[in-house]
Design a protein around this nucleic acid. Structure first.
Lengths: 352, 352
DNA sequence: CTGAAAGCGCTTACAG
DNA sequence: CTGAAAGCGCTTACAG
């Protein structure tokens, strides 16, 4: 029989590299292993003194219950899978931070998978989540939803789409009110007197791009200006794409005096292109972004943008999952309002 | 008996919400469940036709082996735990992206835990990894290493410290050559003629801060200038801290003409503070950062910095883990060289 | 209050 | 080539 001393000598480990199991603790405490299980889980059915003694022994032995064994019998893993398109995108990182925070508070561990916007990989990743028997899945900003939504439907695991590009009445989702937020952002520009306002979109943005374009268009038309297709150019949601789009816009015979960008990352590129041409922000061109990423306020001038509460949205997605796991039936469609943050990159149009 | 049709009707699921198990497939294929196991794992001991038939049935039934059951018997989970201090930090996100990439390629899933630099939470997180029986752990930029290094030593799970703050000859680590990189960065400034060069550190940076300070100091002294303690101010590794530190420096009777910052995030704050005082970059003050985050090149002027190959470092950490899991005994201490990237935020000192 | 038994879903010797 | 048995580490009725 293994003595207490022996176990303490190499905490949590037995000879042969085996981790201490509930049976080892049972042997040390001279009780049956079910009793150990009950004691450790705080069951009222075990005598308090016995329970205390067992807990002490388990503690000394550095015992840690095996989550795998537990999930096998419990039928749930206390695990959620998070699929992202790119963890290095600050928006995504903010969302994940919020998800992880709430998950940890509720005893859930999170699997992170980065699809890199590769459809095949995204499917592979979801499959691996299925094998891991995750209790739920959160998908952020997926660009290939159409491809694997059917895969997920077969999984019978609750899924929450965050900033999803393929919304559905039947899917749970957390999303910002893109139309309203973009309307507000663009109206801010029309109110500053701008009439030639461009939109730099994200060609991978699907639904959110469509909605932001719609809000933009509504504000433009509401200002009494006709919508001009030439003022809408799509980038890739990254600085590079924003820069190219801006370049194209500035070469127009009648270039815009203001630009509303799909996101701050695109705006970053647009800003650089404007400066590269010797134009000033906001005197020559006003720029509005979307997201309110941390660096906005450190740009010169600071970027006017629409705040998207990333962390909070991550929280909400996890919260939704918890409610569904708690038995709620109806699908949740949370729509968060955006908030226009006016800073130095926008100004009244110069008379031309 | 459950018919094939029935199963296909609700792929992967049986009545009662149970997922199809190996036994269900065995029943459908009229073989024993060990045979199913062998067929699915591609064992050569099963007749090819039988294997094919079983695989087809499993496929149709949407069968996915349970990772939990498998790890229980195999003794490994094909899982790694990644502890970060803050996933919203772009450096950390870049590293995680690299880790996840290589992990996925090798069939490993990654658990992500964000400690938020909270020591208690960090310990809790490591404990949960222990229960999950992760095969290895990677810790990024931990500020509280001292607190839980002992905890990890008890776990008997290989640990790789990335950009760790409490290095040890006995721990595996991946780290940039901080001293050399900082020396190069600072020498770049001395070569531009600067003699009043400040260092904005990270008071939470421990080892890396100490090393960067050392490299800075060596370059300063090598230029024939005496080290001046007043030119060293510590921030918190974030823009706010960098801004405050810069403010303090600019109020010196004899302010610096150049600053070397612990990281780009600190530099972001320093840049703003410099501009806030009506000074120009680089004409009045030259600034060098560290990390080469994505936004550097979009700043005006673009930031001179030391490139830290974040993604590659993540790769290396995972690679190290894989080698150890593959049986290698010796500890790995990978030191990556940094690369000075000269951009517009540094210039020759004006004659004063 | 405590223990013996059964079972979660797999894999791997061991027989045949 | 295939199956019966045992076991990985837990939990939960079921007896006592």
């Amino acid at each position: 029989m293994v003595g207490v001393k022996k176990l303490v000598g190499s905490v949590g480990m037995l000879a042969g590299g085996r981790k201490a199991s509930i049976k080892d603790i049972a042997r040390l405490a001279r009780v049956s292993h079910p009793t150990v299980s009950r004691a450790l889980r705080g069951s009222p059915k075990v005598r308090p003194e016995t329970a205390a003694r067992i807990r002490k022994i388990a503690e000394e032995a550095g015992y840690r219950p095996s989550a795998a064994a537990r999930s096998l019998v419990m039928g749930r893993s206390l695990t959620v899978g998070v699929v992202v398109t790119n963890i290095a995108d600050p928006f995504v990182a903010g969302v994940v931070s919020g998800i992880e925070d709430l998950a940890e508070q509720h005893g859930y561990s999170v699997f992170l998978a980065d699809s890199n916007s590769d459809p095949e990989r995204e499917v592979r990743v979801v499959r691996s989540f299925e094998e891991r028997r995750v209790d739920g899945i959160i998908v952020t900003s997926s660009r290939v939803g159409a491809l694997y939504v059917p895969v997920m439907e077969q999984m019978h695991v609750p899924v929450v789409l965050l900033n999803n590009q393929h919304p559905s009445e039947f899917a749970n989702s957390v999303v910002i009110d893109n139309v309203e937020a973009s309307f507000a952002a663009t109206r801010h520009l029309t109110q500053l007197g701008h009439r030639r306002i461009a939109y730099i979109g994200d060609r991978f943005g699907h639904q959110s791009d469509t909605d932001r374009l719609a809000g933009y268009r509504r504000a433009v038309e509401q200002s009494g200006t006709e919508f001009a297709a030439e003022l809408v150019v799509h980038g890739d949601g990254k600085p590079e794409g924003g820069e190219q789009a801006m370049s194209q816009l500035l070469e127009l015979p009648n270039p815009p005096t203001a630009v509303f960008c799909y996101n701050d990352m695109s705006a970053l590129g647009a800003l650089r292109q404007i400066r590269a041409r010797g134009l000033r922000i906001p005197q020559d061109v006003s720029v509005v972004g979307f997201d309110d990423l941390f660096f906005d306020v450190y740009l010169d001038p600071p970027l006017t943008t629409v705040r998207q509460p990333m962390r909070q949205m991550g929280h909400m997605a996890m919260e939704t999952l918890l409610q569904i796991l708690g038995g709620e039936q109806h699908t949740h469609n949370v729509k968060v309002p955006g908030e226009l943050i006016i800073r130095g990159s926008t100004a009244i149009r110069k008379g031309n």
